[in-house]
Design a protein around this nucleic acid. Structure first.
Length: 599
RNA sequence: GGGGGUGUAGUUCAGUUGGUUAGAACGCUUGCCUGUCACGCAAGAGGUCGCGAGUUCGAGUCUCGUCACUCCCGCCA
């Protein structure tokens, strides 16, 4: 039998007692971190959410209690009553906050016995991801995960305080809602009372927050789950949390200012770091040109350099032909890295190939010569131009990618990040923020042969570009902005379209005709024509932000109960089969399941 | 949908060219120990080598398939 709590009342937590508390009678409750049985005296490290206190069972103090304490094992849950005493002179433990004292126990309650845990509750012990997820409640006892979750709480508190002070109203929006076209795959929920019909879980509260602006709430925020049924990554879960906000009567600069203030408040509260604002802003075009990606990592240089004009007539046909066909030839000069071996270069070539680069050309700048499979194709004049453009000096190696602009930028941009990692150019405690602005409004989907919104269909085009919608849609820039931290997109938003006519025009561009538009989001178009204020907003990925704040490399480590890469939960074994009666009630037939187990 | 990595004791891993009884560390159990702090000492238990086929006199090791976890590409407005 185990003991019940009875009248025992906790007086302190396990990180609280100091030498100033000596001689106090205290009651502690917690889990057994370690047991050290010396035959006579037994030491136990008692752990709770706050920390660890050493408790002592001494047979000279109470034989019966000492006897009972023999039984204690790791992870047992105890309540103990005793006296705070000073540790003997040289027995202080400077590594513990409570290391000056210990508690000599007079009364012991064993609330729970515990099976031997699958892994030790200690950050120094490794366990596989699968085991950690299966026993998540044990992993959450360990300091690393526990502290991440506590940091997340600090962050959300800072966010709520900040936004409340700025006049934002926290409003909940429905989870059982309507499927929206465009965007990610929806999670569907069958409706029992409307057989054959389905709700969709929201990919974001986008339309509802716009409706709230039209309703006149002026400033809205929500820390809210969003659902996207797409394949997972280290920084992507099917359900994730957004810090979602929307404001009326503002422009993009004002949204960015508010957002910066919030990020500052979070960093101050969680890390006690004072960030410098405003964050730099660069346009999408500049980001692509200099860094190859729309989420540039500004912690290091290694910028990309366009050399298409220099090589357009070169004897090296690979380069020349790419330029002739509207492609792009760009290069990165890795200063002082001409010592790269053939093997290293091959690895980098394989790396670039992942991003569809057909090859990775290179030139090593050696004494008296350019060592390279392609150097012989260039005239002295071309070499001279390259030397100047790329700042080529003795000991450099320069990498080239030649392809369609999209591939050249992506491959070389990713190579830039990889080179920085390999060369150790990335400093640990640097937080390099940047806004990326002036995204294109649309891009062209080759497989579906139509335009699609880069951000979403409700993003406003730049005023001066609106007329181009009819004759050159791809040249239209939008009023969208992303916030990027260390090469990772942590938030994005836009000024929205608040005019019915413009909204219809953009939908038209996307190939959504009036009938379809009315069917899919006629409610929004109606609302827009019922008095819509100019408005815009932004949403941050709370999980990604916390991942960066906690220096984790997966968002699973900042989510209490995350999913595996196949979107399952190893703890609860979700998703699982539905019973025939459940399915019948929902008017659903399951096909293509090999061995359907009837429950 | 595609590519890479991993899977051996409760946990983390080692396991040679295919060869006798599959090892280590930690954890666990028992005993000893009154000042430890991931205590120490001694003894012990613990294995469907992910699963299924195949090759072979013989498979943890080789081949094929399959499952799980993970990283990436596609996908993710």
């Amino acid at each position: 039998m185990t003991d019940s709590l009875g009248n025992l009342k906790r007086t302190h937590h396990c990180c609280q007692l100091r030498d100033t508390d000596i001689n106090k009678e205290v009651v502690l409750m917690g889990w057994v971190q370690h047991r050290r049985d010396h035959g006579g005296v037994i030491f136990i490290d008692l752990r709770d959410k706050e920390g660890i206190t050493q408790i002592v069972f001494n047979p000279e103090n109470s034989k019966a209690v000492h006897e009972k304490a023999q039984e204690i094992r790791n992870e047992y849950v105890l309540g103990v009553k005793g006296k705070v005493i000073a540790r003997p002179g040289d027995m202080l433990n400077p590594n513990m906050k409570t290391g000056a004292i210990e508690v000599l126990i007079d009364e012991l309650s064993i609330f729970s016995r515990a099976k031997t845990p699958a892994f030790l509750i200690d950050d120094r012990v490794e366990a596989s991801e699968a085991i950690r997820l299966q026993y998540r409640y044990l992993d959450l006892r360990r300091p690393r995960l526990k502290n991440n979750i506590l940091a997340r709480h600090k962050a959300t508190m800072a966010i709520r305080n900040y936004l409340d002070n700025k006049g934002f109203v926290d409003i909940e929006t429905p989870f059982l809602t309507k499927s929206t076209p465009e965007g990610a795959r929806d999670y569907l929920v069958p409706s029992r009372v409307n057989p054959g019909n389905f709700y969709a879980l929201p990919q974001s509260p986008q339309l509802f927050k716009q409706l709230l602006m039209i309703a006149g709430f002026d400033r809205y925020y929500q820390i809210v789950k969003c659902f996207r049924d797409e394949d997972l990554r280290a920084d992507r879960q099917p359900e994730f949390t957004q810090i979602d906000m929307e404001l009326s009567f503002i422009n993009e600069q004002e949204v960015m200012e508010i957002a910066e203030g919030m990020i500052v408040a979070i960093f101050k509260k969680v890390l006690d770091i004072d960030l410098v604002i405003p964050f730099p802003q660069i346009t999408y075009d500049e980001a692509m040109s200099r860094f190859g990606l729309d989420r540039p990592d500004l912690r290091f240089g290694l910028e990309l350099c366009d050399i298409s004009d220099i090589v357009k007539d070169a004897g090296f046909k690979v380069f020349a032909n790419v330029v002739k066909n509207g492609g792009l030839v760009k290069a990165i000069n890795a200063k002082g890295c001409s010592t790269f071996t053939r093997k290293q270069i091959d690895e980098l070539t394989d790396f670039a190939a992942v991003y569809k680069a057909k090859g990775l050309a290179w030139i090593k700048i050696k004494e008296n010569e350019w060592q390279s499979p392609i150097a012989k194709f260039f005239t002295d004049q071309e070499k001279d131009a390259l030397r100047k453009r790329l700042d080529l000096e003795l000991g450099d190696i320069v990498f080239f990618v030649a392809d369609q602009p999209k591939i050249t930028n992506e491959a070389l941009g990713q190579l830039r990040n990889e080179l920085a990692r390999r060369l150790g150019l990335i400093l640990d405690d640097t937080y390099a923020f940047t806004w990326v602005t002036h995204f294109p409004l649309l891009d062209y989907d080759e497989t579906e042969k139509r335009y699609q919104a880069l951000h979403h269909p409700f993003t406003a085009p730049l005023e001066e570009d609106i007329e181009k919608l009819s004759f050159d849609p791809l040249a239209v820039k939008s009023r969208a902005y992303d916030l990027v931290l260390n090469g990772i997109e942590i938030g994005g938003g836009s000024i929205r379209i608040h005019s019915t006519e413009l909204q219809e025009q953009v939908l038209n561009c996307l190939g959504i005709d009036e009938t379809e538009a009315n069917e899919k989001f006629g409610f929004l178009l109606n609302a827009l024509s019922s008095g819509a204020p100019p408005h815009g907003g932004i949403a941050f990925g709370l999980d990604r932000l916390m991942m960066l704040l906690c220096r984790e490399d997966s968002i699973r480590n900042v989510i209490a109960f995350p999913k595996t890469q196949k979107a399952t939960c190893l703890l609860t074994d979700a998703p699982s089969k539905a019973s025939t009666s459940q399915l019948q009630e929902l008017a659903i037939k399951v096909s293509k399941i090999e061995e359907q187990e009837f429950l």
